[in-house]
Computed example of a mutant assay.
Amino acid sequence: MCAGIPLHYAVEPEPLDTAGAIRFAAEHAGINETFVVVNGDVLTDLDVSALIAFHKERGAQATMHLTPVDDPSAYGVAVIDDQGRVQRFVEKPALGTAPSNLINAGTYVVEPSVLQRIPTGRKVSIEREIFPLIVADGGLYAMATNDYWIDAGRPEPYLQANLDMIDAVRRSASAPAIEPGAKVDPSALVHHSLVSAGALVEAGADIKDSVILAGAIIRQGAVVHGSIVMGEVGNGASITDTMVGATGNVVPGVTLVHALVPDPALL
Results as ranks from 00 to 15, higher is better:
S49C: 11
K183G: 00
A105Y: 11
V86Y: 06
L200C: 00
G215F: 05
K208H: 06
S49I: 01
E33Q: 13
T242L: 00
A199D: 02
G226Q: 14
Q116N: 13
N162W: 11
G215C: 06
T63A: 05
F131N: 01
M1K: 12
A197P: 09
P252F: 11
I207V: 05
V38N: 11
T97L: 11
M1Q: 12
S172G: 03
S100Q: 01
S210D: 03
S238Q: 10
H258W: 04
G236W: 11
F131P: 01
M243G: 03
M1V: 11
W149F: 13
D206E: 05
P186T: 01
A199K: 00
A94L: 08
I126D: 07
G236M: 13
D185G: 02
D47T: 01
N39P: 09
I228H: 02
P180I: 09
A60M: 12
Q220D: 05
A175C: 09
G40N: 10
N39E: 15
S172A: 11
E57H: 14
A246F: 08
S196D: 11
G245L: 14
F35W: 06
A19M: 08
K183C: 04
G30K: 14
L102Y: 03
V261R: 02
V261I: 15
V90S: 06
V114F: 00
L267D: 11
T34D: 15
F54V: 01
S125E: 06
V69G: 12
T120D: 14
A246H: 14
V223L: 08
Q220S: 07
G106N: 11
P132M: 12
F54L: 01
H28C: 09
P119W: 01
V110D: 09
L66V: 04
S125F: 04
I218N: 07
F89T: 04
L163H: 10
Y108I: 05
A105F: 08
I178T: 00
H191I: 14
A205P: 13
V169E: 10
F54Q: 08
V250G: 08
P264I: 09
H55N: 12
T120E: 08
P132D: 02
L66A: 04
N249Y: 15
L159R: 15
A205F: 14
G121V: 08
G121A: 13
D241E: 14
I118H: 01
A26V: 10
A105S: 14
S172M: 01
D206L: 13
A197F: 06
Y9D: 00
V261A: 08
A177C: 13
P68S: 12
D137Y: 03
I103A: 10
I178V: 15
D263V: 08
G245S: 09
Y9N: 00
A199V: 00
A29N: 07
L95P: 13
T242S: 14
T67E: 02
V201M: 05
S113Y: 08
A142F: 03
V114M: 13
A205G: 14
L260K: 06
A26D: 04
V184E: 06
G153F: 10
P180K: 08
M230A: 15
L43H: 06
P112W: 01
N162A: 09
G106K: 05
D17A: 07
I217T: 03
S196L: 04
I22R: 00
S174Q: 13
A94D: 15
E127F: 11
P262V: 12
A182I: 03
A177S: 15
V48Y: 09
A25Y: 12
A222D: 04
N235A: 13
T247H: 11
A98G: 08
E129T: 07
G153Q: 10
P132L: 06
H258M: 10
